[in-house]
Amino acid sequence: MTHTSARPSARQGRDLLQPRELTVRRSVSRYAEGSALLHLGNTQVLATVSTDPKVPPHMRGKREGWLMAEYSMLPRATQERLGRERNLSNGRRHEIQRLLGRAFRASLDLTPFRNQTLVIDCDVLQADGGTRIASLLAGYAALHDLCDRMIHAGTLSDWPIRHPVGAVSVGLVDGEVRLDLDYQEDVRATADLNVIATLDGQLIEAQGGAEGTPLDPDLYVQMLRVGIVGAGDLLRRVQSQLK
């Protein structure tokens, strides 16, 4: 039977179900309409929000605006230099961008942004596991920054973030369920999930599964529940630093 108690482990003093330390600063970009710099353990992500005064063809004439996300990693975000992502057909990159876009659109009422597109750029400055999770949390903080600025400027009358969104990774490592994996844990995981959920525990998306061997469905559900709680925990940490 898998042991999942939150006991200390060798993972830099963290309990198995304890996320890494999180810090976030908003309004870090001089030019972006909204921005945030987030550290999750050793993973660092800069997120910016830009407003574009047009929408894609499928949104023309609609009551709502549109939102899209872009994701990239700097060449020295990892131990060995990565080539710059000049090839826009990169599959992993597009997968993450679609994940981020779906999550942010589920979070935000886009009616106040009619005939506009919000573009959230998430750039990984340093990677140590959980880059898409850190990108989502940083993007949420940048959206909060945008909306707060617009409220204070009088260009937005009602708060449009309907469902604050959090995220966390969950993995099965050495037969143990662990929360918020760093890189060394992630490469050893025999199952992993990225869980995106609201503050009140509603699921937006779960992405992942078994690596190499099938996963018991009951254990999958257990990992999902752990992830929903962990996503809420990290979201509360972000919110406490945005005030």
Rank of each mutant, 00 (worst) to 15 (best):
T4P: 06
T4K: 12
A6R: 09
R11I: 03
R11H: 08
L16N: 12
L16P: 03
L17P: 15
T23G: 02
A32M: 13
E33R: 07
G34N: 12
A36S: 09
L37E: 12
G41F: 04
Q44T: 15
V45F: 02
S50V: 04
T51C: 11
M59I: 11
M59Q: 12
G61V: 00
W66S: 06
Y71I: 01
L74H: 01
L74K: 01
R76Q: 07
A77E: 03
R81E: 03
R81W: 01
R86K: 03
L88V: 02
G91T: 05
E95I: 00
R105Q: 12
D109I: 05
R114V: 07
T117P: 13
V119M: 05
I120E: 06
A127T: 00
R132D: 03
I133W: 02
L143F: 07
L143C: 13
R149D: 01
M150I: 02
G154N: 06
G154C: 14
G154H: 14
T155F: 10
S169A: 09
V173L: 00
D174L: 06
R178I: 09
D182L: 02
D182Y: 06
D182I: 00
R188H: 00
A189Q: 03
A210K: 00
A210L: 04
P217D: 04
Y220L: 13
M223G: 01
V229Y: 09
A231Q: 14
R236T: 15
